[in-house]
């Protein structure tokens, strides 16, 4: 195990994050806080409760995850794409570090950033809306698991991408719509069939539902389903990344 190598990449990635703190932490927190202000404080009082939870509080887990999805993907994809773009990837490829160790370091740093972002976002939300966390340990476990899954997804995108446009396409065109249609602002139970059934094929519904359950003990799908989908995202992305490293896909000639 190359512990010094893992630590070096982790420190390097965290240093990069600190250099861009406005972009990677403060901006998404302010953006999400504006959602809380507009949809929660301003409009929330005019809306009915969702599953017995005030609308303002109901949207906090979903909006927090929307921010986590985006930053997880951007941070992890940029972390591996930028060395490919600048050519400094040669150093990683020639280092005595296994692909597992490299992924652990890059994704570990990206998960750290996402968890910090989520906690700061939730803390900010408490200023505007009443937030309760009924299952704090489950909330942390869901947060770490979801962050890990989407950071791994972002890492795979970073290896796959051949230009900056490709880096943006999947989070903007796929993840954002799936999140908006995945119960970030509403309970899936409120939908009529066939839309409700179709929506349940969206994995993000399960992820948001589990995370929201850890706050208010209300869920659109069983908690075990949320756990399974989260683990499936992690396992699926790990399998893709393992294949990428084994074959050298878009990493080696």
């Amino acid at each position: 195990m190359n512990g010094h190598g893992i630590a070096a990449i982790y420190r390097f990635e965290m240093a990069r994050w600190k250099r861009t703190l406005w972009q990677s932490l403060i901006t998404p927190v302010i953006t999400t806080a504006l959602y809380f202000v507009v949809f929660g404080s301003a409009l929330g009082s005019r809306m009915s409760t969702m599953d017995g939870v005030s609308f303002a509080a109901f949207i906090v887990p979903g909006l927090t995850l929307l921010s986590v999805f985006m930053q997880s993907i951007f941070n992890a994809s940029f972390g591996i794409y930028f060395p490919k773009f600048t050519g400094t990837i040669y150093e990683l490829l020639s280092a005595p570090i296994s692909s597992f160790e490299a992924v652990l370091a890059y994704v570990g740093a990206a998960v750290t950033k996402s968890v910090i972002l989520a906690l700061v976002t939730i803390a900010t939300a408490t200023i505007f809306v009443p937030v309760h966390i009924n299952h704090p340990i489950a909330m942390i476990l869901f947060l770490v698991g979801i962050s890990a899954g989407f950071c791994l997804f972002g890492f795979a995108i970073g290896v796959w991408a051949q230009n900056f446009e490709q880096l943006q396409i999947i989070p903007m065109l796929i993840i954002t719509p799936l999140t908006f249609l995945g119960g970030a602002f509403y309970s899936v139970k409120a939908l009529h069939d066939p839309f409700r059934t179709i929506t349940l094929f969206n994995p993000i519904v399960h992820v948001i539902s589990g995370f929201r359950w850890s706050f208010y003990s209300v869920a659109d799908v069983p908690v075990w389903s949320s756990v399974l989908v989260t683990l499936a995202i992690i396992a699926g992305c790990m399998a893709v990344i393992a294949w990428m490293f084994r074959t050298g896909y878009r990493l080696k000639q």
Partner: peptide, 23 residues
């Protein structure tokens, strides 16, 4: 090719390489 991490200091980039190679 002169491929370097543009925003890192000389000290940090050299220290990073040492750690990456397991030292």
């Amino acid at each position: 090719e002169l491929t370097t991490e543009a925003f890192e200091s000389v000290w940090n980039t050299v220290s990073f390489s040492r750690g990456l190679f397991g030292r």
